[in-house]
């Protein structure tokens, strides 16, 4: 059974420390939600796991079934079974979604003949209410935010990763689309998918049942619990957790004295 194990992950972006030692474990069949206010490092965590340029890992590991993802190229991470659904999916002019999925499946040794690929894609497109025309269009170019997110969910369904990191998958989606995407994600764990869903709002958790909820503040996981943690968050907001750790308080006090 697949497992993503993030241990003491620290990372910088543009020379500024963003992640200060993140620990998480996501197993196949589980849905984990990472919640936090703007700027807490949620997207950085997603990008660092996927290997996006512009970040420097300063400490820690991210093991996927024992292999440290952080030593791999973005392609190798995807091959190892990681998928990132981006908050703002990149527009790639002139490159059709169909060709991207075909190339990826071929590289994974799932070499579908054209007819099979077409059948697979149209089945998944239907499940997600994605118009089939989207497949023939350039990836994310001139699409609404909702179409882009459905496109990300479609890729997730077709590529069948072991671990999926969903960065704000709910933003830009209307209620129906959000339900369709959540349904598709919830069906996936029977295929053995582990989900790390990053979100700002509890809205996603209204439709996507999380097994574990983590609260991230200033680059650290400050609380973890069951779904009830999200309910608590809904009542109290982030402020309750958003205070300096005792050690930092001591340092600050020490400085001011």
């Amino acid at each position: 059974m697949s497992q993503l194990s993030v241990e003491g992950l620290a990372a910088n972006a543009a020379g500024e420390a963003i992640l200060h030692g993140v620990d998480l474990q996501v197993s196949a069949g589980e849905v984990h939600a990472v919640m936090g206010p703007n700027g807490c490092g949620k997207s950085t965590l997603a990008h660092v796991l996927a290997g996006r340029h512009g970040y420097t890992v300063t400490a820690g590991r991210a093991l996927l079934d024992g292999r440290d993802l952080l030593t791999l190229s973005p392609f190798e991470r995807a091959r190892a079974g990681l998928f990132l659904a981006m908050q703002y999916p990149t527009e790639v002019p002139g490159v059709k979604l169909l060709d991207v999925l075909g190339a990826s499946l071929r590289a994974a040794g799932r070499s579908p003949v054209a007819a099979d690929l077409e059948a697979l894609l149209s089945t998944e497109a239907e499940r997600l209410s994605v118009p089939a025309a989207l497949l023939e269009r350039a990836v994310n170019v001139d699409l609404s935010g909702g179409e882009q997110k459905r496109g990300e969910a479609l890729q997730l369904a077709v590529l069948r990763p072991r671990i999926a990191v969903l960065d704000e998958i709910d933003s830009g989606l209307d209620v129906d689309a959000l339900r369709a995407v959540a349904r598709r994600i919830e069906e996936a764990p029977t295929e053995g998918l582990g989900v790390l869903a990053i979100t700002h709002y509890t809205r996603l958790l209204g439709v996507l049942r999380a097994d574990r909820v983590h609260i991230m503040i200033r680059g650290r996981i400050v609380a973890s619990g069951g779904p009830e943690l999200a309910d608590e968050l809904e009542r109290t907001g982030y402020e309750r957790w958003d205070r300096p750790a005792p050690a930092e308080v001591a340092v600050k006090l020490g400085r001011s004295f």
């Binding site: 002019p93 002139g94 490159v95 190339a103 890729q155």
Partner: peptide, 23 residues
């Protein structure tokens, strides 16, 4: 990055991007 993170090998990603650039 986007194409590689979908599991497209780097050489194929580059080819798709160049072909797309001319599209």
């Amino acid at each position: 990055f986007y194409l590689e993170s979908r599991g497209v090998p780097p050489d194929v990603a580059e080819r798709l991007i160049v072909e797309g650039f001319f599209g």
